[in-house]
């Protein structure tokens, strides 16, 4: 049984902002299907009344003081920019 369809995979690729050729999409869909098939094993586990863990730490309230620290210079901020203009990061037309 198929877990993920080509259409679903294509939707996921859009959400993830990945352009995939139709060959790539075919291949990745079948690989995803294999992996998700394996992953489905988690459904066998009885998790009735079990809380989800997003963290193995039992710490909380990690806060910092509201004290100003040096910012980067504009030059350093833009150092790795693929394109820049007027002190900002230049991006193509927003669609």
């Amino acid at each position: 049984m198929k877990i993920i369809s080509l259409e679903q995979a294509s939707h996921v690729a859009k959400l993830a902002e990945l352009e995939l050729s139709s060959d790539e999409l075919d291949k990745i869909t079948s690989q995803l299907d294999d992996i998700l098939g394996h992953v489905a094993k988690i459904n066998e586990a009885d998790t009735e009344g079990v809380r989800p863990t997003s963290h193995t730490l039992d710490t909380n309230n990690v806060l910092r003081e509201d004290t100003v620290k040096d910012s980067l210079s504009q030059e350093d901020a833009l150092k790795n920019a693929p394109q820049q203009s007027g002190g900002g990061f230049l991006v193509p037309k927003i669609d």
Binding site: R64, D66, T67, V68, K69, D70, S71, L72, S73, Q74, A77, L78, G86, G87, G88, F89
Partner: peptide, 27 residues
Amino acid sequence: STNTKMFCGCALSFGAEPNTRTCPVCL
């Protein structure tokens, strides 16, 4: 109107030169 940003120590600013109130975290 805190002194610094939500998750890093950059000062808040209005009207500063572009990208002069950034650090590795908020970038």
